[in-house]
Write a protein that binds this DNA or RNA. Sequence first.
DNA 1: CTGTTAGCGCTTTCAG
DNA 2: CTGAAAGCGCTAACAG
Lengths: 329, 329
Amino acid sequence: MVPTIKEIATKAKVSIATVSRALNNDPRVAEETRKKILDISKQLNYSPNILARNFVKKKSNIIGMILPEISDEFFTEVIKGVDEVTYEKGYYTNVASSHKYESLEDEIITFIRNGLFSGLIILLSDLKPKLEAVLLESHIPVVLINSNTKIKNFDTIAIDNYEGSYEMTKYLIKRKNYSKLCHITGPVKNDDSFLRKKGFIDACEEYGVTYSIEQGDFTKESGYKGCKKQLRSKNKSQVIFAANDMMAIGCYDFAKESGLKIPDDIGIVGFDDIFVAQYLTPPLTTIRVHIEEIGKNAADILIRRIKKEIMPARLSIKASSELIIRESC
Amino acid sequence: MVPTIKEIATKAKVSIATVSRALNNDPRVAEETRKKILDISKQLNYSPNILARNFVKKKSNIIGMILPEISDEFFTEVIKGVDEVTYEKGYYTNVASSHKYESLEDEIITFIRNGLFSGLIILLSDLKPKLEAVLLESHIPVVLINSNTKIKNFDTIAIDNYEGSYEMTKYLIKRKNYSKLCHITGPVKNDDSFLRKKGFIDACEEYGVTYSIEQGDFTKESGYKGCKKQLRSKNKSQVIFAANDMMAIGCYDFAKESGLKIPDDIGIVGFDDIFVAQYLTPPLTTIRVHIEEIGKNAADILIRRIKKEIMPARLSIKASSELIIRESC
DNA sequence: CTGTTAGCGCTTTCAG
DNA sequence: CTGAAAGCGCTAACAG
């Protein structure tokens, strides 16, 4: 039989209220009483019934985390970061992918209505008005992992997309002396894509070089296609900056297939620094994002919101990125 | 104000018990009454308070998943598999890494005592007696993702280690005509390592070839060292079978460094088929394990245990593996 | 088929 | 500082 505060109360000859107070570090309990209660509960090997506590407090110690359907190493890292801080602070981390059979909005509605989560961390490629409305209505703390600077109503943790992309482009132009560059973008309606593209374009225009844009969607295949299209056009670029490493891999595939040497015939760079990047031949020059930071920050902010700590109305944090120079350009 | 069954009861002019029954599909409710209740609850936009329900039922709809501290793509896949089936069945998936500051046993004890989880999926490299005792004592359903065939008290989902390793070794000997092979093992006290090693040895002995063993620990560095040691010994092998791809990468590193051509000077194969395997130069021959199956099976079995469905006392399922032939041997 | 009632374990007024 | 008591929303006997 699992011990309850009632038993402790009996043994300690006090009321359950006092036990509850002692256990919750309520200051208005005599030191002596507290000590006795703590002793007994230790002796009884007591641990509070979280289910009961959550119920009466009308809130859980569980944080929900909603990931996009696709899985990749990015998410493991984020989860790890989140888990590390939640665990430390006595919260649990619940993960769910957005599932194919439901729209993200519906799924999140289900989540919220269930009342199981006291806060939500959502990885989002873009925030649609409907979802925003749902979230706002819910009145539970939400942290978004997303890079759109226009988000006004939520705390956001973002990747340093623009800066990273700008840095990379500048590096290609100033250090590597490329004057004809091409950028293969991520999907339309994706805030990361948008900013990476913008960083690229701004740098190109600032330094007055020729550039072109191919539309991609973050998949390897789209990288392959973009590369193909670009290299067969009459205005061939000297270097391709893919908006993520996966598309850069697609470019490698095409280059290899057409007997083009990297970086001599064509330079290729990416963004993300996924694990495989360093093992490509040649190793890929790319931008590394400090992912675990993202998870940690998200969890930290969320928990502080849950605890209603005093803090600015809306936080917007950027995880730093770093140029990783290897041999692909 | 969030509606409760009480409100529904008032509006429907029935008791809360009837509402509860109707909502829980209890057959002893008149069709007409049920319809009325369902209508009203829809109209009120009612959704049950999970916290209350869990509390009164003394069990949650949450499954805990405990992962090793290290993170890699394996886990994302497993999580995905688990989440897919739990979500479908109305359960939530809680993930936690084993945290550095606590022993795995203590952490699991905390988890269990909290009473938040109605079942546990644990990824384990080996099952220590202390942990086994803790788990047994808890009386909550547990599914282990581990390959030790000697585990008697829990359902287990395993990787097809022995068979995969045996297959690979046989392939090296019979198809590739290697007669001097080397195996770099994973860590001692790791059930996967043990079985992979055993599969290798058994095949070598069965076909009467010369073989040697180097001790590794699944890290890239240990693969590098093992390869170095092996290739500098007087009894050089013709091919190295690393117990995982990461160590195979270490071997590649050493081979490249010493100017050895793969596969002409030395063959190298791995186990796991991690994403990068296909992008190594040359692409790595390895064993692919169907990871998502593992997660799905684990969740499926666990939920059936939670629901106390009738099923065999102890299930032991193996995820299948598959030889992926590329160009590294 | 439906209603009444007890109670889950805990927190939190309200009194004292 | 401590106790009594109410009540969170729901389920599950039990009675009818």
